[in-house]
Nucleic acid binder design. Structure first.
Length: 407
DNA sequence: CGTCCACAGGAATGACGGGCGG
DNA sequence: CCGCCCGTCATTCCTGTGGACG
């Protein structure tokens, strides 16, 4: 009989010895991670030079126009913006021009307050992580920028998230604060995945924020192949992958929406699988396994960070819709949810709150909550889980408070 | 053609953890 | 230390609503 510990040590030993033998496929794992900004962005020359032209005025001390960048996920928006800003920052530093380039992701930050905090930290201003009014943080930032006459470019990624959750007031304040900051200034670069996002902006913000606009089209499968090849030569050892594997990665991602990030993720995960298997070449088989794993990974990451009640609501939705779809109204889900809460000893939240949680889970893409009218029989959200029971249970099993709800 | 279901979702309010200025 | 402010999450109370049924 082999204990768990023994087995763990065995596998660790084999991993280590393989690494020592130099059998790893990766020579630079970072180049395939999603936050990696490559030196060279193929097929984005026109966009890059447009951004550069728009931002260039900062090099002689005047305020660049605000910019709005559109494009679906994985079309290189973030990479392009980060690429240009770091290049600019380098040039500015060389020529001793005072300027700040700050990047933040609104969805990661979560709230208006925390987005502003990113800006504050970026310009070197200390702000407590809670306790202040948003307007207070804003005026401190403005005051600080005026005092030090800071010239700043602020990139807000996934800006559509911010608008949907909080409205455009903050953006209005940010774009109309130039006199409070002068002789410093603040230029905004908004990045949006949503092409219709602009219509959600009020007219006053719309004209200010999108002084300039740029659209990033999706990559074709052909272009993806070139990109992946470029990344692969940086990230992987020369003989560690087949061209067929690269081609498959680009074909699989290109057929959907030309999503480069997904293609790169796919390649990385395939590499990791191949490495774990101990094979010395990444081939098409690994890519196919990775394809199954990739969505699951993304989802379970989201699941893990969910608050406890959101987890239970999600579980309740899955149970409710499991056998027959007539049991997927928000009322049914709530009943199931409170039943589950009773089992864990937790106090159930109100219907109102659960309704809110359902919409939150919808925006996370973990389920769809469509409002439907059954006339005489009322008006509900029709809940359809977007993840399987298997995936959910796998993640929730590691949560002590709800693991016994899974059966 | 009006009724009325079964909720949606807005507004006001409160508890909580936390910072502020005095 | 105090009294006051904040954001966040949740509750309570409320008004609104599309369309099948009678």
């Amino acid at each position: 009989m082999i204990s768990d510990q023994d087995r763990d040590r065995d596998t660790l030993d084999t991993i280590f010895s393989k690494a020592l033998q130099g059998r790893t496929l990766f020579k630079n794992h970072k180049a395939l991670q999603s936050d990696f900004v490559p030196d060279h962005l193929p097929f984005r020359n026109t966009q890059l030079s447009s951004i550069a032209e728009i931002l260039a005025p900062i090099l002689h001390g005047s305020k660049p126009s605000n910019l709005l960048i559109y494009g679906k996920t994985g079309t290189g928006k973030t990479a392009a913006a980060r690429h240009i800003t770091t290049k600019l920052a380098q040039t500015a530093q060389k020529k001793r021009i005072d300027s700040n380039f700050i990047y933040c992701n609104a969805r990661m930050s979560g709230t208006e307050y925390r987005t502003l905090c990113e800006l504050a930290i970026g310009i070197g201003l200390k702000i407590p992580f809670t306790g202040l009014a948003v307007t207070e943080v804003l005026s401190r930032i403005q005051h600080f920028m005026k005092q030090h006459s800071l010239k700043t470019i602020f990139v807000i990624d996934e800006i559509d998230y911010l608008i949907r959750a909080y409205g455009d007031d903050l953006l209005y304040d940010l774009t109309s604060s130039s006199d409070k900051i002068s002789p410093g200034f603040l230029s905004l670069i908004g990045i949006s995945n949503d092409l219709q996002f602009k219509e959600e902006l009020g007219a006053r913000v719309q004209s200010r924020l999108s002084e300039e606009e740029l659209v990033f089209p999706p990559y074709s499968a052909e272009e993806l192949r070139t990109i992946l090849n470029e990344r692969a030569t940086v990230a992987l050892n020369t003989k560690a992958y087949t061209t067929a594997a690269i081609n498959l990665c680009s074909a699989l991602s290109g057929s959907e929406h030309g999503d480069a990030r997904r293609a790169v993720d796919l390649l990385r995960i395939a590499g990791e699988i191949a490495e774990r298997e101990g094979s010395d070449q990444l081939d098409e088989r690994h890519v196919r396994i990775a394809l199954q794993k990739i969505d699951q990974d993304r989802v379970s990451e989201a699941l893990k960070t969910l608050p406890i009640h959101a987890k239970i609501v999600l579980l309740a939705s899955i149970y409710s819709s499991q056998n027959d779809s007539t049991h997927s109204s928000s009322g049914f889900v709530y009943d199931k949810y409170s039943e589950l809460c009773k089992k864990t000893g937790l106090e159930a939240l109100t219907t109102r709150r659960v309704s809110g949680l359902l919409t939150e889970l919808d925006t996370l893409g973990l389920l769809t909550a469509a409002v439907v009218n059954y006339g005489r029989y009322g008006r509900t959200k029709k809940i359809t889980p977007q993840i399987s029971f298997a995936v959910a249970s796998k993640v929730f099993e590691s949560d002590d408070t709800i693991k016994h709800l899974i059966h």
